[in-house]
Design a protein around this nucleic acid. Structure first.
Lengths: 285, 285
DNA sequence: TAAAAATACTCCATAGGTATTTTAT
DNA sequence: ATAAAATACCTATGGAGTATTTTTA
């Protein structure tokens, strides 16, 4: 269209004139109507040619931009990192890190998403997250993602305030062997039930399940109401609501691992730095 | 990504597994980073693969929609017709046609653009119009577009109200041979000057130019001020402002052709119908 | 008749298939 | 040991080039 001549256009495109003729004929045949009218003066565009240019130019532009973004990403120059975290817990590691990271990589945008472990895993699987700061539940991800332990923390027992054991100074896991356990639903906190099960087995008993809940709040409510018990990582120690007693377990083998999951594939420098900062902060705390 | 296995994906895509492996390797090499991690369990997508899908899906969608629109157009099923017209004149032909057209093709959207002849030609060249309802200026388009005469109308002389000739009952072109002519600029009304020149030559003289203007209003103003003259198509007969006298020329060979220009290429049925309606209306008037 | 596009014909690159090997669990 | 991906090797199609013919102003 710009040259008005297949010969000139072919020269500009570095192909021979017959080649361009054939390419044009192929498109015209596929479309079912001519794109140019030919004459001894050259070629003149039809209305269809104008429409083709009008509608395809933005598509090609979008493709080029997308491809450029992809190659940049592939070469480790990514413009954003999306991190999922568990509001109640990870803020402890994450908050101080954000500022440090911004200093090292001011041009990389950091997105933080406060999500339940279940949501984090789902987001990782959809590709909506690059990193997930997840708890013990990370083990559930199996080999779907790269894992790295960030910190190992203690375990607390959740008891109704009026529970006999709540009077004691310390508590060990085996003392809970006859209690009824309540766990969050698998969809909300995948692997929590399994983790409790494994802890109890190490303590020599098998837990007795009396119910599933949808949230931490709900768990507390039912424990208070039904005199049941549960186990939690100890970052929740300060959050006991009225009617609930939280007690650190004395067992040395009872722990909870803070895990960082990341998308498979090459690790971009910016992402590597972020992970390093998080790990250092976690180790220090 | 959906199958989690090159074998299954290859089966779904109706190609062999080695073919898919090679295609994947080609893209990975071009990108510079792997899209999948391979194992004896199948393949698992990297973050890059998620990004690729995320960014390319809308591009492919846009391409498919654009191509569908183009093939529809190529097969004569166009969803719109864009018509440029000269407000002062073409409304006469166009207004009654719009309603009739809507009855025949209720699904085809009609866009009407009030433009000067110069703008119309430019829009046609850019592909922004499908049809242009243009005056004598259409002849200037040469062979760039398909032409069709719609109506042949008379010519009027433009005189200052106090001009000696303005007193007469009729006027012929040859009586203007000693007058000074004013024409709109070539950019605004291409070919107007040439048309007047040819008319005068038929009447046996060569016009004397005394100026160029930017618009019809401007032309009237300068004619009134400088006692100059000009020629116009007779659809402007009723529009004489104060201080200006418009008189129909008696010469039978002085006429002005109303021309319809259309984009090159196949004529869609809807467009053909529209042109037919315009031609019929013009003939009747 | 001259400029431009279309065709004829040839060649080679590449995409695809089959058979086989390598790898990882 | 088995399932899955990678490789080796071969074939055929299609895209590109050169030389030539056809077309039209």
């Amino acid at each position: 269209m710009e040259e008005g001549s297949l010969n000139r256009a072919a020269a500009r495109l570095r192909v021979s004139q017959p080649t361009l003729t054939r390419q044009l004929q192929a498109i015209e045949q596929e479309l079912g109507a001519p794109l140019f009218e030919r004459g001894s003066h050259g070629v003149l565009p039809t209305g269809l040619a104008h429409h083709l240019r009008e509608s395809m130019t933005p598509v090609i532009g979008a493709y080029d931009r997308a491809w450029a973004e992809l190659t940049a990403h592939a070469h480790g120059r990514q413009s954003q990192i999306r991190v999922g975290y568990l509001g109640l817990s990870a803020a402890r590691f994450l908050t101080p890190v954000v500022g440090q990271f911004r200093e090292i990589h001011p041009d990389v945008r950091l997105w933080l998403f406060d999500q339940t472990p279940g949501e984090q895993l789902q987001a990782l699987r959809k590709g909506d997250l690059d990193l997930a700061l997840i708890g013990q539940e990370g083990a559930m991800a199996g080999d779907d993602f790269y894992q790295q332990r960030v910190a190992r923390i203690g375990v607390i027992a959740v008891l109704a305030a009026g529970h006999p054991l709540a009077e004691k100074d310390t508590i060990s896991l085996s003392e809970l062997s006859t209690e009824g356990f309540i766990v969050p639903a698998e969809s909300a906190v995948p692997g929590r039930k399994l983790w409790i099960q494994q802890l109890c087995r190490k303590a020599g008993f098998s837990p007795q399940w009396v119910g599933e809940t949808d949230s931490v709040t709900d768990t507390f409510a039912r424990i208070a109401a039904e005199q049941a018990v549960s186990l939690l990582p100890d970052y929740l120690l300060q959050t006991a609501p009225p009617g609930i007693t939280l007690m650190r377990l004395s067992d040395r083998c009872a722990f909870w691992d803070f895990t960082l999951l990341r998308q498979r594939g090459r690790l971009a420098p910016a992402c590597r730095d972020l992970i390093r900062l998080i790990a250092e902060t976690a180790k220090a705390s």
